[in-house]
Nucleic acid binder design. Structure first.
Lengths: 228, 228
DNA sequence: GAGTTTTAGATTATCAGACAATCTAACTTC
DNA sequence: GAAGTTAGATTGTCTGATAATCTAAAACTC
């Protein structure tokens, strides 16, 4: 029995051929491609169909385009790709308890790196301290949440591990909703935890910081559990 | 001094708004979106500009379209993302040493969860064992790499933490090229490590598994460092 | 009445032609 | 030489249109 092959969309064919062109011409980031018009003519399609393919490749950073200049080979940006990952069902429909577990693993996991880098660069502790200081004068829940998120991001950032910064940002997006029910009475405890953590790190007490951070993130567990 | 803000491309704005629409309408895979014409009118843009955005989202599997039917919500397809990102080894900005560190943090971080779940479900160990067994008969580097990736994915998967499974997949995409230089003499050692890790986990020796896994992932560090 | 074929309408896929916006190099002015 | 202007190149976005595909309803056949 012969099966019919699904007709491939022109744009998908063109995207593949653009990738092949980049490889065969040995192009790297910043290198120019032919103009849209030239490519459309070479591939025998309309310029707009060509653009549907190039815009798809641009979405991932594989290509870049500038008005007046042209198309160039891009650099795939991990932050961008990780951001798209937010549409993965594992995150989109994430169980809040899994978000907590994931945050614990990532944030506690970077502490050793943070501590090492703090020993060499006092500015890292200062940056985190600045956020803690600003947190003490937060009056609205929204502001407190922003500062809490900023603190946790800065913490991961202090590790220098960019992949985890990107992923941590993503987790915060989904986790944000669960902070809405934090009581004002808990703000102080949260801020005190932040202070404890960064001081422990500055003093090279990584295990102590890890316990405090775990406890801090875990503090959401019952409140969130009660909501679902 | 006031800085000029770069003008955002219409298609990028529309892509973001489509994602927001999906979330706010609580749409899931298979659910219909308004027609291209309706969306274009709602967003106040031409239908072709709307399509540049939708084709970008389709490129990742986030949307699907069928002639005569319309647009539906899809599922982000990691296989597709893998294929697109992996077509050229040098086109991303991920630092290999950071990828190693990130993998260690994620994979070692999940071990406690894996161990707990293994105690309740022997199938988890069996699944990993099956991958190790298949690895012993790998003849081509490509096959060995696939099985190595499969093993590490299954390990994270055994934790039940879906957000980390998705992120682990993404890390593997970027890491894949660095396995290309693994010598055949190292395959055996790698397989032995896999065996050691899963047996330690089965026996609730989490710290021992963690050390072995760290060492296993770190084994890439010098080889990769020497290349760059 | 049941099954098959055809048709109409809906919707995406792709096109041609056009003007707007942005960039860069060359030219002009001071 | 520095600053400003212009021309040309190229992408960004649009209007209007036809082609291709899908589905449900209508028509046809037995």
């Amino acid at each position: 029995m012969l099966e019919t092959l699904p007709r491939r969309k022109i744009r998908d064919v063109i995207a593949e051929r653009l990738k092949s062109y980049i490889i065969s011409e040995e192009l790297g980031p910043g290198d120019r491609l032919p103009t849209e018009t030239e490519l459309a003519v070479s591939f025998g399609v309309s310029r707009l169909s060509l653009r549907e393919a190039t815009k798809s490749l641009e979405f991932l950073g594989i290509l870049e385009s500038r008005t007046g200049v042209g198309l160039t080979v891009g650099l795939i940006d991990m932050q961008r790709v990780t951001n798209h990952l937010g549409f993965h069902p594992a995150l989109h429909n994430a169980d809040p308890q899994q978000l907590i577990d994931s945050r614990v693993i990532v944030e506690v996991g970077v502490l050793l790196h943070v501590s090492r880098r703090m020993a060499e660069d006092a500015a890292l502790h200062a940056a985190l301290q600045s956020i803690v200081d600003r947190s003490t004068s937060a009056r609205k829940l929204e502001d407190w949440i922003d500062l809490d998120i900023e603190f946790h991001r800065a913490l991961i950032e202090a590790s220098g591990l960019l992949p985890l910064v990107a992923f941590g940002d993503l987790l915060q997006v989904f986790f944000r909703q669960f902070r809405d029910s934090v009581k004002k009475a808990e703000w102080k405890a949260g801020i005190a935890s932040h202070q404890q953590i960064i001081d422990d790190l500055r003093d090279q007490k990584v295990e102590r910081a890890a316990l405090e951070l775990t406890s801090h993130i875990e503090s959401h567990r019952q409140r969130i559990g009660a909501k679902s």
